[in-house]
Simulated assay, not measured.
Amino acid sequence: MFYYLIRKLLFLIEPEKAHFLTLKYLNIKNFLLFDFFFYKTKMASKNIQCMGLTFKNKLGTAAGIDKNGEYIHSLSKLGFGFIEVGTVTPLPQIGNPKPRVFRLIPIEGIINRMGFNNLGIDNLIDNIKKSNFKGIIGVNIGKNKNTRIEHAVNDYLICIEKVYCYASYIAINISSPNTPNLRNLQYGILFKNLLYKIKKKQKELHKKYLKYVPIAIKISPDLSKKELIYISKQLIQYKIDAVIATNTTLDHSSVSGLENSLQKGGLSGFPLQKRSTEIISILSKNLQKKIPIIGVGGINSIKSAKEKIASGATLIQMYSGLIYHGPKLVQEIINKA
C-alpha cells in the first residue's frame, strides 16, 4: 500500500522527472523509512548459472533504468540478481527532445523515444568503479546517433574495448526503435559483420586480459518468425553467449484509443508481455539450448515471470513492472517465480 501511495504522487509528475527523483531517493543512504518499507522482506538465495557466470537469482534490471550507472548499489539493495546499466554510447549525447516518455496507465504501458541519452562510456566506467558493487553488472552499449549505420560496428567495438575489464557481461543493443536505422543491424550482411567483428574483439580481449566477458545481443519484438530463425542460426554460428528478448515495440495496435497511444516511440510494459514471451518461445525452439535467453518485456506479476521462464528464458529482467508495482514485486518474483 505504501508504494501505491507514493506512485500516485509520482504519477502527478512528468515521467522522466519522476524516474530521476525516484532514483535520487534510492541513493539516500541510511534512510530508515526506506529500509523499513522496501528492505523488510527476506529474499531467497537461488544461485543460477548462465553465460559462465553465477547470478544470485534470475531477476535483473533491464537497461534504461540506470543509463549511466549512477544507482548500481541502490538498485542491488532491492534484491535484483544482476544490474544491467546503459544503454551507453562512445560519446555523450542528449537524446531526443523532451517530453519523450509517456505513461499508458490503464494498461500499465510506457512509450518512450529517449534516443540513447547518456553521459558516455567513460563516465559509466567511472561510476562502476565508484560503486564497489561485487555482483553481476551487465553493460548495454549502442551507437551514437550521428554514426552512419555502415560504421556502427566501430562504436560497439570502442565500447567493448573500454568496458571489458569492468563488465560482467556486455549487451549489444541493435534493436532500439529510437535511433534512426539502428534496427537495420539485425539483418543480412550488417548483422553478420557485426557478430563477426564483436566476436573477434572479444577473443582478442580475452587473450589480452585472461578474462572472458560474455556478449549478449538484444533484439526487437517486431521481427517475423522467419527473421528470428535466421537470427538464431547466426547467433549459434558466431557462438554469441546470450540473446536478450526483447526491446520495445513499434506496434501500438494493442493500446489504440488510450491517452498517449499516438505518441511516437517504443512501447513497453504489459502491452508487450505476450509478444515478448512468444519471441522467447520461438528462440528457444531454434536455439536448442545452445544459447541462453534473457527474457524481458511486460513482467508485472509472478505469473508473467513464470511464463517467461517456462517459455525458455534462463534469466528475466524488469523495468515497467517496477514502475507500476514497486519493489514488493521484485521480492515476490525472486521468492516465488
Results as ranks from 00 to 15, higher is better:
G297C: 09
S311G: 08
K58N: 11
Q49I: 13
H252N: 10
G142N: 03
K67Q: 01
R7A: 14
L104F: 02
K145V: 02
K328A: 11
S311I: 03
L182D: 00
N286H: 13
I65K: 01
T314Y: 05
T61L: 15
P90V: 10
L182R: 06
I105P: 07
I334A: 03
G115K: 07
I158T: 14
L322Y: 12
P15Q: 08
Q331W: 02
Q234C: 15
Q237N: 12
I94G: 04
M318S: 05
I128L: 14
P92H: 04
K29A: 12
L182C: 05
Y212S: 12
F55T: 10
I6E: 06
L26W: 10
K207E: 14
I316W: 00
K46M: 13
G115F: 05
T87C: 03
Y196L: 14
I217R: 00
N154P: 04
K98M: 11
D66H: 06
I316A: 06
N286I: 06
G295R: 02
Q49C: 01
K290E: 15
A44V: 13
L91D: 10
N184L: 13
G297W: 02
N27F: 14
I299G: 11
R113I: 01
S76Q: 11
D122C: 06
E14T: 07
Y3S: 11
F36W: 12
G115T: 06
L228H: 11
D35T: 10
K77A: 09
L157W: 13
I323Q: 07
K58F: 10
P214M: 10
E16G: 12
L26P: 05
I105F: 11
K77R: 15
R7K: 14
I323F: 15
K289L: 04
G60K: 00
Y238C: 13
M114E: 08
K77I: 01
K239Y: 12
K328L: 07
E278H: 07
S281C: 07
T246F: 00
Y196T: 07
Q186P: 03
I105K: 15
I158H: 04
G81E: 11
Q234K: 15
A305S: 13
D222L: 06
K197A: 04
Q234D: 07
N123K: 14
L235T: 12
I125G: 13
F133R: 00
D155F: 00
K233Q: 15
S284R: 00
S276Y: 02
F102N: 09
L21P: 02
L182T: 03
I121M: 05
T179D: 02
L9V: 15
I244S: 01
L75V: 14
K130G: 07
N132F: 10
S253A: 13
S256W: 06
T147N: 06
I170E: 05
G142K: 08
Y25A: 14
L53D: 09
G321R: 04
G295Q: 02
G326I: 05
L228Q: 10
N173C: 02
F116K: 03
N30I: 06
Y230I: 09
I128T: 09
E70Q: 15
I282W: 04
N47M: 04
K239Q: 14
F191K: 03
M43K: 10
Q317C: 12
K328D: 13
Y25Q: 00
N178H: 08
V101F: 00
M51V: 10
G138C: 03
V101C: 08
I160F: 01
N123Y: 15
A62F: 00
F20L: 11
E108I: 04
S311M: 08
E14M: 03
T22I: 13
G321I: 03
P327K: 09
E84Q: 04
D222N: 01
